[in-house]
Amino acid sequence: MTKGKQLSVSAIRNGTVIDHIPAKNLFRVISILGLDKFDHQITFGTNLDSTKLGQKAIIKVSEKTFVGDEINRIALVAPEARLNFIKDYEVVEKSIVKVPLEISGITKCVNPKCITNNEDVMTKFHVINKNGEISLKCHYCEKITDQEHMSAEI
């Protein structure tokens, strides 16, 4: 395995390393991925130095390989995140997150009169990506939830 950087948080045998998470969004990533309800070993480090992000966080999740939309949901709060899939302490595959076209259930709609805030309806948004600036257009009420309001709700 690669030496140095990754060793700032103890190595895992099998699982996924999620790197390049903005430090301030670590707990939102944990909550989006439901790691607070996860049974296997998880280690994380935060406020690590990163030339790109200033302060970054890293999460190592044992016995779990995240795929596709499952992981792309974190793109809203960690668009630069990189994934390393680990098997027997070796990186067997690398991946980056992709901003999905649609996103369900991770943030509330900003509009108090939206059906999703008043009935038992899962939120669903169409992702608008304007030069890296991400905002969400509600599938139901058509109102835009911007980054600032997402932060407040996630």
Partner: peptide, 10 residues
């Protein structure tokens, strides 16, 4: 007709 926005789509 419904007072909530998105009600008809839902």
């Amino acid at each position: 007709r419904h007072p909530l926005e998105g009600a008809a789509l839902y």
